[in-house]
């Protein structure tokens, strides 16, 4: 199959790789070592593979790598690490919102996108924002709490509290 050299800016690093046209962004990210992007269904049903593509949340299994040529991609792993976790990541850990953890990276990506456009979401807006991210462990209760906690902490940080 014909390949094309694609440029991907992922979590602040630039990769140039030759890829066939049918390779999804999900496969590409995981092959490059971004295994925090999870494969749950490859059909866009579960949201485990969500990443930010030019700031917008997408299921990376539904995007072809060619379509992401030149794009800025942020995965959950790009938001923070154990030494310097993102406020949302820390809130998920503190609120007990993580059980098996497999849906978590996608959940946090959806949360980031939500709080970027709406820093003070209602419960209903939170539930709507993560409705494409399936979780089989938590019943979403503590995930919603974690997102509210993250929003509070981000607001507090902004006000310098």
């Amino acid at each position: 199959m014909e390949t094309k050299v694609v440029t991907l800016h992922i979590n602040g690093r630039t990769h140039q790789i030759a890829l066939p046209p049918n390779r999804t962004l999900l496969q590409t990210l995981r092959d490059l070592g971004y295994t925090d992007v999870k494969n749950g269904c490859e059909k866009g049903d579960c949201g485990a593979c969500a990443v930010l593509l030019n700031g917008k949340p997408v299921n990376s299994c539904l995007v072809l790598a060619w379509q992401a040529d030149g794009a800025e991609i942020v995965t959950n792993g790009g938001l923070g690490d154990q030494a310097h976790p993102h406020v949302i990541q820390e809130a998920f850990a503190d609120a007990g919102a993580i059980q098996c953890g497999y849906c978590t990276p996608g959940m946090i990506v959806s949360t980031k996108a939500l709080l970027d456009r709406n820093p003070h979401p209602t419960d209903e807006e939170i539930r709507e924002a993560i409705s494409g991210n399936l979780c089989r462990c938590t019943g979403y209760v503590k995930i919603v709490e974690a997102i509210k906690l993250a929003a509070e902490r981000m607001a507090a940080a902004k006000e310098g509290r």
């Binding site: 792993g77 923070g80 497999y102």
Partner: peptide, 21 residues
């Protein structure tokens, strides 16, 4: 005590390596 679970932060930042990884 409702302490933060010892596995929570690694999972939150996507550090935990699952079988398919």
């Amino acid at each position: 005590k409702p302490l933060r679970r010892v596995d929570a932060l690694a999972k939150a930042v996507g550090k935990t390596v699952y079988a398919g990884d």
